[in-house]
Design a protein around this nucleic acid. Structure first.
Lengths: 257, 257
DNA sequence: CGAAGACTTGACGGCGGTCAACATTGGTGG
DNA sequence: CCACCAATGTTGACCGCCGTCAAGTCTTCG
């Protein structure tokens, strides 16, 4: 169980749980692997909650208490070093599961935190595990999701190891826009992005001060603009060149059948 | 098919393929998830080969041609940027599969290279895929291996993003010794390590020159010694403190049952 | 023995970190 | 509605870790 939720905690009504065909061509979670559709499985109750302030839902060193899916908003997965240094390992967007690792019953080696304003779905861990063991289609979704997350982790490592601050930021912003666009069309090349500069810093291996400086340089170059929690891409082509961005790692099909 | 192999290319004799119980407590690949044991599955032929010189067995942008397992020696998985920069994403040790991603039939977004002197086993991709789909036990091994590799990828990102050159090297050397020790006991706190300093540099986001300087500092501090392809841990306790090393991410059980 | 690759060391410079001060924003209560 | 306060963002000065360039030395192997 988790604190810091708003009072609203809703159960999906039976009416919302339409019949879902487990066979057929369409993978259970759709081509975009949208885990919100997990709630369409019969008998899988969701507890949906609005997160009012930053909330840690999974904690490094402890096993997962539930299987969470981000319905709206942003979250991130991170590691904490002994002396307080933090490394953000990935950002969660609507439709992403809060860590496949939750399905293994062992202590986690990372934490997951939701940003204020997010909406999360909380599924019973045992039931999801059971379904993942029984339902061939869901199994493939798990594997495909592992592949996608791994691809992003590898790209992050490449960012951290072999790109400059400017390139790293450009690359990550392009990743955000591309990922969101895979599940819902992006208008005006801008998306809401409630991250603080400290989040970007901890994800990109920089300090907040240098993130600030670099963002200024990117804005001065008319490449991107971040303002009031909104990210806008001003010159996509130049950004892609600058960051050496190749979106294939995000969109590949990764089928296992 | 792959070039640069020695002429020796052996098929396991039937005699070597003992009956293997798929049920029972013991996971198919054993507690250390040693994929060399894949050859114990009936009907799964291996083509075993000695790699005489550095050989790329999987190539970024192409689907895998086979499912490879490292039997002896070292390999690594990496990404190449357009301008030649390289990021090594993980090192392969004996018993490691050359990329679970091979099981998905889509183009890879990384390459895998074997170092000279390695011995690799080459399994038919379709047959492994079939077994992974049918054999519940093997499925769990796949998931557990994903978890292990993911845990290491996350730790690498933390290395790259939030640790100094000295800490990064210390951490990686501790990882090597610990991983090898999980499958075969390490003596004299030393292991063979045929990596060039350029491999360490490309894995740790440094230049070879700085790797060299840092190795010298670590040797001067009587922490580690690398010489003639052998890594020796001189002061394990001090290293662990320096690197903030916590081996739990390597050894956790990650069971899925 | 010769050549190619790997390792080593020094001098110098720049990207990004550190420290410090201040501006801006947003939320809270009077 | 405004005063206050904490969190976040911004900018400048300075410094240090690590990159770059260059010139070696050592090792390996044909």
């Amino acid at each position: 169980m988790v604190e810091n939720y708003s009072t609203a905690s809703v159960r999906h009504s039976e009416a919302m749980l339409g019949q879902h065909s487990l066979g057929g061509d369409d993978p259970l979670l759709g081509p975009a692997l949208d885990w919100r559709r997990l709630s369409q499985i019969q008998g899988l109750g969701v507890r949906q909650s609005v997160v009012t302030k930053s909330t840690t839902i999974l904690r490094q060193g402890y096993p997962a208490s539930a299987f969470f899916v981000l319905f709206e908003g942003w979250g991130f997965k991170y590691k904490q070093l002994g002396d307080g240094r933090r490394q953000i390992l990935s950002f969660l967007l609507p439709g992403d599961p809060a860590t496949l690792s939750a399905l293994s019953t062992t202590p986690l080696n990372h934490s997951v935190q939701m940003l204020p304003g997010s909406v999360i779905g909380e599924f019973d861990l045992a039931i999801v595990q059971h379904n993942a063991a029984v339902d061939r289609n869901l199994q493939n979704c798990v594997l495909a999701t592992y592949e996608h997350e791994f691809a992003r982790a590898d790209e992050l490592a490449t960012n951290l190891g072999r790109r400059s601050a400017k390139e790293r930021i450009a690359h990550m912003m392009l990743e955000f826009v591309t990922r969101i666009n895979l599940r819902s069309p992006v208008r005006d090349r801008s998306i809401p992005m409630p991250l603080r500069q400290s989040h970007l810093a901890d994800a990109l291996g920089l300090t907040t001060i240098h993130v600030n400086r670099t963002l200024r340089a990117l804005r001065d170059g008319n490449l991107i603009d971040i303002r009031g929690g909104v990210l806008q891409i001003l010159n996509r082509k130049a950004l892609i060149t600058l960051a050496n961005f190749d979106e294939k790692y995000l969109s590949g099909n990764k089928s296992f059948e």
